[in-house]
């Protein structure tokens, strides 16, 4: 049967799929790594969460529904962290910003930051860099 909850779930799934497509389009169109990372991370995270929410609504409160909610939690917690890690790794690997960029405060401060981190690593070698709650 197709009822009201199904219609709401299908609206969520349609919107999510559209945002996934826009995110991947941004991945192709935008000029440098950081912009691509922004567009793709935001749009694809929200799009996939919306698809999962629609699945949860349609499947209902059975095993699949709870698992879809848990999957939303994991995706929302992990996607920004991996975006942050990739952005920092790309910047430290020396990948320049697009030539139309306005300011790059990070490369101005990076020598001081590296020295500070070196000192911290020497003092306490077991400091975790990022902390997640998975």
């Amino acid at each position: 049967m197709i009822d009201f909850v199904h219609v709401v779930g299908m609206v969520f799934i349609g919107g999510g799929v559209a945002f996934d497509l826009f995110g991947c389009l941004g991945l192709v169109r935008l000029p440098d790594v950081y912009n691509r990372l922004q567009a793709a991370t935001k749009c694809v995270t929200l799009g996939t969460c919306s698809v999962l929410l629609g699945t949860c609504l349609i499947v209902g409160p059975s095993g699949g529904g709870w698992r879809a909610l848990l999957c939303i939690l994991f995706v929302v917690l992990t996607a920004p962290v991996s975006a942050h890690a990739i952005a920092r790794g790309a910047h430290r690997a020396g990948i320049r910003l697009w030539e139309g960029s306005v300011s790059d405060a990070y490369s101005e401060d990076r020598d001081a930051l590296n020295a500070k981190q070196q000192a911290r690593n020497d003092n306490a070698p077991a400091t975790p860099q990022t902390e997640t709650r998975t």
Binding site: R29, Q38, K42, L46, L97, G100, S101, S103, D104, Y106
Partner: peptide, 26 residues
């Protein structure tokens, strides 16, 4: 804010003039 972000990014990606002015700030 997340919904606003998505509409904003989708608008920027679909716009033919690509209105971006990127940079890193403190």
């Amino acid at each position: 804010q997340c919904l606003r972000a998505n509409v904003d990014v989708a608008w920027r990606v679909l716009n033919p003039r690509l209105p971006i002015r990127p940079g890193i700030v403190r």
